[in-house]
Write a protein that binds this DNA or RNA. Structure first.
Length: 349
DNA sequence: AATACGGGGAA
DNA sequence: TTCCCAGTATT
């Protein structure tokens, strides 16, 4: 039996029951696809349900505020996805009269929609025969056909893209796209795939040549950088000083506390650090260390220290928007995971 | 072509 | 620890 038929047969017998598979509504599919970018199904699922409940149609999404969207997005990461979605939702109301596009050609123009997502939405919502190419597809194709071109190289993307497009089932592209991705996610897993029960095992190049641990090949990527962020808790009349990250690197448009970033671990007995704090919060400031945390991102290791300040003066020019808010109000604002963790600990939750 | 952008789960 | 997840935008 052909590669495609084996995949769809396997899919029909083994697929998970996922909510976005019961619709052809391009808005709902868009919602699911953006949420699932670089995100496991189990992690994205609750977010999908909450978003769909809050915004049943693209018009509802477009009417929301950015803070609302980011608050719902909190904890999911890659926050530009949420901001781009709001931009796109509003654009669809304005330019497309609220009608969500379904063709690859139109979808690819939308902010936050790249080749993968345009192929996914167009095939699932309108049956357009555009092959999806995500991490799962790369892996299945690399192993089955024995392709060792690095998947994150320009040549590799071209080669895999052409192969994927040549394989897509013209009769039911949606079914085939779903099938190959689900197969990669559940069966042809990155580590220890279930080759014993694989319907394609006899014709799998990687399996026959002991290349399962080698394929797909991926070029070594970025060095992780280490940084040290020191947060200051300034309380006053049941409020705390918070800061909106406007032009910052990570966590754009989320809220955190005033901070000083240092080149190394900061310490209260370190002259340079205390001088910098005094420069910012006044010479009489008292610095009380609260706790240290380590926060891991894909590309950064962040050592975070929290300090409580007393006798401070807030007369400095904060580079970003600063506000006094109550703790319950801060809870309503979108914030980085590390802050949520700290606040929970701080209040002994 | 390379880098930035989160957070979590599996081995 | 290391890898990588239903990737995209920017440099």
């Amino acid at each position: 039996m052909a590669f495609q038929q084996e995949l769809t047969r396997w899919y029909l017998a083994n697929k998970r029951n996922l909510p976005w598979r019961h619709t052809q509504d391009p808005y709902v599919i868009w919602l699911s696809e953006i949420i699932l970018q670089q995100t496991r199904v189990e992690q994205g699922l609750p977010y999908f349900n909450r978003f769909l409940e809050a915004y049943p149609a693209v018009s509802d999404f477009a009417a929301a505020s950015e803070t609302e969207i980011l608050k719902l997005w909190q904890g999911l990461g890659y926050y530009s996805r949420g901001r781009n979605m709001l931009f796109t939702a509003r654009q669809i109301m304005d330019l497309y009269d609220g009608v969500f596009p379904v063709s690859y050609k139109d979808l690819i123009k939308l902010k936050g929609v790249g080749e993968y997502t345009a192929a996914a939405i167009s095939s699932f919502s309108s049956g357009e025969a555009k092959a999806v190419l995500d991490g799962n597809v790369f892996r299945v194709l690399a192993r089955y056909f024995g392709i060792s071109t690095p998947i994150n190289s320009t040549a590799g993307k071209k080669q895999f893209s052409e192969l994927a497009q040549s394989l897509i089932d013209q009769e039911d592209p949606a079914l085939y796209n779903q099938a190959i991705m689900e197969f990669g996610a559940l069966q042809c897993k990155p580590k220890s795939p279930d080759c014993e029960v694989c319907p394609l095992v006899l014709s799998c190049y990687a399996k026959n040549n002991k290349l399962i641990p080698v394929l797909p090949v991926k070029l070594k990527t970025v060095k992780v950088k280490t940084r040290y962020i020191n947060y200051f808790i300034c309380e006053q009349d049941n409020t705390v000083l918070v800061n909106k990250r406007i032009l910052e690197d990570i966590w754009q448009h989320l809220y955190d506390f005033p901070r000083i970033e240092t080149a190394a671990e900061a310490a209260v007995n370190h002259e340079e650090f205390t001088q910098e704090v005094k420069q910012k919060f006044g010479a009489d400031v008292i610095i009380r260390p609260l706790m240290e945390m380590k926060h891991l991102l894909t590309h950064q290791i962040i050592y975070v220290q929290f300090f409580a300040l007393d006798n401070y003066i807030v007369n400095f020019n904060m580079s970003t928007e600063a506000n006094w808010v109550t703790w319950p109000d801060l809870d309503q604002l979108p914030q980085p995971k590390i802050l949520t963790k700290f606040i929970n600990f701080y209040f002994n939750k």
